[in-house]
Amino acid sequence: MNFFKYILIILFFFFSSISISSEKNINLELKIFKNLRCLICQGQSIYDSQSDFAESMKLVVRQKLELGMSENEIYSFLEDQYGEWILYDPKFNNKTYFLWILPFLMFLFGALLILRKLGVFKK
């Protein structure tokens, strides 16, 4: 099992060189555009939409970024104006517990069924 030990050691060095939260924000602006839903063409993000509203919204986001507002500050500003609907990324709050958790429950439930089929619960 020496071999695995080496692998583990190398793996360790590997991951220590990777910063976990190094989401690079070169294109923060585009990321924000893609996460805002257009109120005029309601099926699209303002990134995909060319409506007047979307164009103005892009300018507003750009302006706020230049003023040094963070991504979340921009979201909460717009959410105050237009409601949570405008954000494509639903927040984790009492409205969305089910949304976020239900898929995981399904996954766990599936695991149980599979373990049963593999005979794990049989004595």
Binding site: R37, W85, I86, L87
Partner: peptide, 20 residues
Amino acid sequence: IYPIFLEVLSNEKISVGPPF
């Protein structure tokens, strides 16, 4: 379909998009 259920049950509207 979550947004449909949420709207009927609590009258709140949310969007579930690509990030989710």
